[in-house]
Amino acid sequence: METLLEQAFNGLSVGSILLLVAIGLTFTFGQMNVINMAHGELIMIGAYTPYVLQHDFGLAAGLSILLGLFIAFIVAGGVGVAMERGLLSRMVDRPLDTLLVTFGVSLILQQAARDIFGAPNVDVVAPSWLKGSVTLLGVIMPYTRLFIMALVAVIVGGLSVFMARHAEGRRMRAVTQNRDLAAVSGLSPRRVDATTFFLGSGLAGVAGVAVSLIGSIGSQVGSGYIIDAFLVVIVGGLGRMKGTIIAAFALGMLNAYAEFWKNASIGKAIVFMAVIVFLQFRPNGLVSFRTRGLTS
């Protein structure tokens, strides 16, 4: 029983990290149809943010993490907007071209990180209040994992409110559903695209700060998450936040139990097999929107 609970906690923990790295993609990939291969490097920018704050600015570990969340959001968001304005805005409705271009950007950003920070991985010092763990029903729950779960809960809650109730959230949904109609209604799709990309990229930066708490970071820290992030968004249903949340935790749980049953490699293979089988039956993902028309 204890083992079962332990794996459930591991599943939730893996799921929350998956959700964190994937949630930005629900905007850039799911809604804007941009296959952003540089999403991982935006995570990397976020991961290096607390490191820079600690290493170059001498900030205390706790402050560097909390302040890092905001700075990483702004910096990664800014890089994302620069990429969107400079490159991707010329490729509306050409998703395969966005894949190639962002792959190039990803390589450039990785090399830039190696030039600036060096090739070896570095560590972000976790604050003292994140060291240690709490034991509940025999399950050891590290504070870092609980912190990431809480962070995910706050982000998901905030985003849900923003998308449903804020005018800019409504504009983002309108533009992604029908660009031309939005344009002839007086909304500016180009400006809204920039906001959507800023948000999606900024969230990748926030995910990077969380990732820096669970291991060493290097120029390729983000690329390790990119496949998982795309997997979560596709299984969830493109652009559907509810689906992304369910998919992240479902894949996290499956991964945890499969890993426990066999080993990490077989666990990963089982997850991929499950996704392939799932998409045979629900190619549009977990949550899709049905209209009276035939096309959606």
């Binding site: 409504r170 949904r173 309108a174 559903q177 029908n178 031309d180 109609l181 939005a182 002839v184 929107f289 209209t291 028309g293 959606s296």
Partner: peptide, 11 residues
Amino acid sequence: VPQGHAVFPQL
């Protein structure tokens, strides 16, 4: 007012 279902379907 364009032709057809000129609405934002998920709104």
